[in-house]
Computed example of a mutant assay.
Amino acid sequence: MRFGFVTLGANVPSTRFRFYPYENPLTKRGHRCRIWTSYPSVYDFIPAIGWRLSYQLKRANRLLQYSQARWFRPDTIYLERGVFHDQSLWLDCWFRKLAPRLVLDVDDAIFLQFPDKTRQLIEMSDHVVVSNQPLYDYVAQYHSKITEIPTCVSLERYRLRERPTNPPKKPIIGWMGTPSNLPFLAHCAPALRRLAREHAFTLLIVSNTSDPLRTIDLEGIDLRFETWSPDVEIQRLHEMDIGLMPLPADQDWMRYKAATKLVQYMSIGIPAVASPIGVNAMILQDNSVGFAASHEDQWFESLRTLLLDADLRHRMGKAGRALVESKFCIEANIDRLESVLKG
């Protein structure tokens, strides 16, 4: 069969984790796949030409992709959230009419921004794929054909981190993510400052820019920043001993978020400390792969416990990898997605 993926942007996390990794496995199963990606991404603009011209470029790019899709004649269009990050639906409707089957992927609370558009997208789809139970519950108000496929990693790409034979004297606590999420580190910064007064560690931050760090008080912490790129992503993760995933508890959007960072940490075999919001709460409920932390004392005690116990880190990391292999990897979910796309 022929599948056309209409996605948000080459470096948008949801595109990278929910669409790209499935292309090769589906191709190996005899399907023909095309990925049409917004340029610039639906959230970005090119500074040299400004917002208005960037939008015109996106629009022209999408129209070209629609023309390519007409020639490709897909059996199924797999649409990521929507063609544009605005209220418009006109091109979504064009793609809908182009293929016998439309599958909508919802991995975030887009309905908080565009409630009417999201409802209409759901209703005009043949099937909806969601990344977690809270999103499932929302979509179920408007559609009966829903499949939950969590945001996953490829086991082939996310290799298990080897346990160092000579561990460094200063363990590395790490965070990796987009600049928009970097300010969330403020929620665990007091615990990190307190921890740094008692124990030696390095805080490794991996992101596109360090600018948001200026607003976070990390005084007294041995801080190391590395610029993110797909080429070094796995290498930087392998340098970490403990992962961080703080989230604000007062934002509705957060309870619908995928546990992407947590899954990345688990996939390479390291434990994490994370805010117990949304999917995180389910993953961390039995403290087998990491710890949940809601306030400063919990962040401090959880990080301190992991920092001082390398064996515990290893056991939790091993359990996390096993969980990823059973539920949060492409290999465990490819059959389900293929079935949805085929209809």
Rank of each mutant, 00 (worst) to 15 (best):
G269N: 05
W299S: 04
L57D: 02
Q65I: 05
Q264W: 00
Y39H: 14
S125M: 01
F19H: 15
M1E: 07
G320A: 06
W175D: 00
L102A: 05
F84K: 07
V129H: 03
L307R: 08
E325P: 10
I172P: 02
Y22C: 06
S326Y: 06
M245A: 11
L102V: 04
N132W: 04
G30V: 12
L160T: 07
D105Y: 04
A249H: 15
T178E: 10
R336N: 02
Q285H: 15
I221V: 15
C152L: 09
S38F: 03
I242C: 07
P276E: 07
I277V: 14
W90D: 09
T165D: 08
L323D: 01
V206S: 04
A281E: 13
G269E: 10
Y142N: 02
Y158F: 15
N61L: 06
R214Q: 14
V273K: 11
C33P: 03
R163P: 00
P150R: 10
Q285N: 13
P230C: 08
N132H: 08
L306A: 05
F3T: 04
F84L: 13
C93K: 14
T27M: 11
Y43R: 13
V279S: 13
P25V: 05
G82L: 03
L135R: 05
R321G: 07
T76Q: 07
C33H: 06
M124R: 12
A292T: 02
I330T: 03
A293W: 05
D116Q: 15
A189L: 09
E162Y: 00
E123C: 03
M266N: 01
T305G: 01
R313D: 05
L262S: 02
G290A: 09
P134S: 06
S54C: 11
L204W: 02
T76M: 02
G320D: 06
F3G: 03
R73G: 00
D211E: 15
I234K: 09
S67C: 11
